Simulated assay, not measured.
Amino acid sequence: MSYQKEQMVDLILDKLTEKFDSLREQYFQENDVTKTKFFYVDDLLPVDLAEKIFLAFPEKSEKWRRLTSFRENKCTSKSFDDFDSILRDITFAFQDNSVIQMIEKITEIPNLCGDDTLYAGGLSMMSEGHFLNPHIDNSHNQDRTLYRRANLLFYVTPEWKLENGGNIELWNTDVSKNLTIESKFNRLVVMETNDKSWHSVSKVVAQGRRCCVSNYYFSETSPKQKDYFHITAFNGRPTEKLKRLQCFADNLLRTSVRKVLKKGIGKKDLYKSDDKQV
Score class of each variant (00 low, 15 high):
residue 154 F to L: 10
residue 194 N to R: 03
residue 168 I to A: 07
residue 173 T to W: 02
residue 179 L to W: 12
residue 129 G to Q: 00
residue 187 R to V: 08
residue 136 I to M: 12
residue 115 D to N: 14
residue 138 N to F: 10
residue 117 T to F: 03
residue 130 H to G: 10
residue 198 W to V: 01
residue 180 T to K: 06
residue 158 P to H: 07
residue 173 T to K: 10
residue 128 E to K: 11
residue 152 L to I: 15
residue 135 H to Y: 08
residue 178 N to Y: 13
residue 118 L to F: 05
residue 178 N to V: 14
residue 136 I to Q: 06
residue 140 H to R: 13
residue 113 C to I: 07
residue 172 N to G: 00
residue 174 D to Y: 04
residue 131 F to H: 07
residue 130 H to N: 15
residue 200 S to R: 08
residue 131 F to W: 05
residue 209 R to L: 12
residue 159 E to L: 09
residue 111 N to P: 03
residue 148 R to I: 05
residue 151 N to E: 12
residue 161 K to W: 12
residue 172 N to I: 04
residue 125 M to P: 00
residue 213 V to F: 11
residue 155 Y to A: 11
residue 118 L to T: 05
residue 182 E to V: 04
residue 142 Q to G: 00
residue 144 R to G: 12
residue 141 N to G: 04
residue 145 T to M: 11
residue 138 N to T: 08
residue 154 F to Y: 15
residue 206 A to Y: 05
residue 167 N to I: 13
residue 130 H to W: 12
residue 153 L to H: 08
residue 189 V to F: 04
residue 169 E to F: 15
residue 124 S to P: 03
residue 121 G to N: 03
residue 166 G to T: 09
residue 185 F to K: 09
residue 132 L to E: 11
residue 157 T to Q: 09
residue 130 H to T: 07
residue 202 S to H: 09
residue 109 I to G: 00
residue 133 N to I: 05
residue 141 N to Q: 04
residue 183 S to Y: 07
residue 126 M to F: 01
residue 132 L to I: 15
residue 157 T to K: 15
residue 114 G to Q: 02
residue 175 V to Y: 02
residue 207 Q to Y: 08
residue 126 M to A: 10
residue 155 Y to F: 15
residue 192 E to G: 10
residue 194 N to I: 07
residue 181 I to D: 04
residue 191 M to Q: 11
residue 204 V to W: 01
residue 167 N to M: 10
residue 147 Y to K: 04
residue 190 V to E: 04
residue 175 V to W: 03
residue 113 C to K: 13
residue 199 H to F: 05
residue 186 N to P: 11
residue 184 K to G: 00
residue 140 H to V: 05
residue 147 Y to T: 05
residue 116 D to M: 12
residue 115 D to K: 10
residue 149 R to F: 09
residue 142 Q to D: 08
residue 140 H to F: 14
residue 190 V to F: 06
residue 172 N to L: 03
residue 189 V to T: 10
residue 167 N to S: 14
residue 170 L to H: 03
residue 109 I to A: 04
residue 211 C to S: 14
residue 153 L to V: 05
residue 211 C to A: 15
residue 176 S to E: 15
residue 155 Y to H: 15
residue 200 S to C: 09
residue 144 R to A: 11
residue 124 S to F: 02
residue 147 Y to D: 13
residue 158 P to M: 09
residue 173 T to V: 11
residue 170 L to R: 06
residue 139 S to A: 15
residue 118 L to C: 06
residue 200 S to I: 03
residue 163 E to R: 12
residue 195 D to Q: 13
residue 204 V to N: 02
residue 211 C to P: 11
residue 148 R to S: 11
residue 168 I to G: 07
residue 163 E to L: 10
residue 210 R to F: 01
residue 122 G to Y: 01
residue 158 P to F: 08
residue 119 Y to R: 01
residue 138 N to M: 09
residue 189 V to G: 05
residue 191 M to I: 08
residue 164 N to C: 14
residue 171 W to E: 00
residue 166 G to S: 13
residue 212 C to R: 01
residue 151 N to K: 01
residue 122 G to R: 04
residue 119 Y to D: 10
